[in-house]
């Protein structure tokens, strides 16, 4: 049984503009013990008083002094309010919720490949930093629609043995999909190397569908961070239901095996009233 996630009010320390539409909001909670055990990939529910409460990944976590951060793309009312926060503003956070990425044993794997799409990088970057600090070799494949949405470029370089970027329009790195980079990476590996590899991925679901297909094809294990519309974040309302699993509690990170059982993966989301919608209508 998990401990109840009471809301903690925190003051915004700083808002860092990562690009024209993406910002990182830094804050330092008082109840450090509660947050320092956060597993990358777990999420917070973030209350922006007067606007909304939304699930957010933690993109930044540093000890001494203790700092946390989340990276937000301005795509709607709540994310715009988050991007417009000023130093000293109060926000409420509760969590950490759900299952994050599961770092394999160094005995079984030696390489972690991060495959990130768009602001999905906000979730994978912390996981990949963690993998690196635990002595895994790290390869990062990072994609975005265009150069302006390709964030954390220096940070990616500093935590990767190898890093490759892609943009849909070719404005930075490889022109095309990040899945193409993964395909090239896996093609160049031996069967033995593939068995000793784990892939962490987060991004648009249509991208992760391609990643899943490649991993199945090459026999590589992976973990997928899913996004669904969430109201409560604690397994109550079932708004985030995907094929009978609650993304907030059973996920948001699912193993490849678990993903294989989710019929909704790559197919459907649910709207606010709970009606299923085909995925393409939900892709932002």
């Amino acid at each position: 049984m998990r401990a109840p996630g009471e809301m903690e009010m925190v003051k915004v320390l700083k808002v860092i503009k990562e690009s024209s539409s993406i910002s990182t909001v830094l804050f330092s909670p008082v109840h450090i013990g509660r947050w320092s055990g956060l597993v990358p990939g777990q999420f917070l529910m973030v209350w922006i008083p007067g606007t909304d409460e939304v699930p957010m990944s933690v993109s930044f976590l540093k000890r001494e002094p203790f700092r946390m951060g989340m990276t937000v793309q301005n795509i709607g009312e709540a994310t715009q309010a988050l991007c417009s926060l000023k130093q000293g503003d109060w926000i409420g956070i509760r969590g950490p919720y759900g299952y994050g990425f599961n770092l394999p044993s160094n005995v079984d794997k030696d390489l972690i490949i991060g495959v990130s799409g768009g602001v999905g990088a906000a979730s994978t970057i912390l996981a990949m930093e963690w993998a690196r600090s635990e002595d895994f070799r790290t390869v990062n494949l990072v994609g975005a629609r265009d150069r302006s949405l390709l964030v954390f470029r220096d940070r990616w370089r500093s935590i990767s043995d190898e890093v490759r970027f892609s943009t849909d329009d070719g404005s930075f790195g490889h022109k095309g999909l990040v899945g193409d980079l993964l395909n090239m990476e896996l093609l160049a590996m031996s069967d033995h190397e593939r068995q000793r590899t784990m892939v962490f991925t987060c991004g648009p679901e249509i991208m992760m569908v391609q990643v899943k297909r490649l991993l199945d094809q090459f026999g590589v294990e992976g973990q997928f961070s899913l996004e669904r519309f969430m109201k409560c974040g604690i397994g109550l309302c079932d708004s985030c239901s995907a094929s009978g699993k609650r993304v907030c509690m059973d996920g948001p990170v699912f193993s490849g095996d678990a993903i294989s059982l989710l019929r909704d993966f790559g197919r459907s989301h649910r709207d606010r009233s709970g009606r299923p919608l085909p995925l393409k209508e939900c892709v932002r």
Binding site: W47, D52, S273
Partner: peptide, 13 residues
Amino acid sequence: PREGHPNPCVVEF
């Protein structure tokens, strides 16, 4: 159909 209330819609104690 009903969309329900906007968030926040839960508080944990």
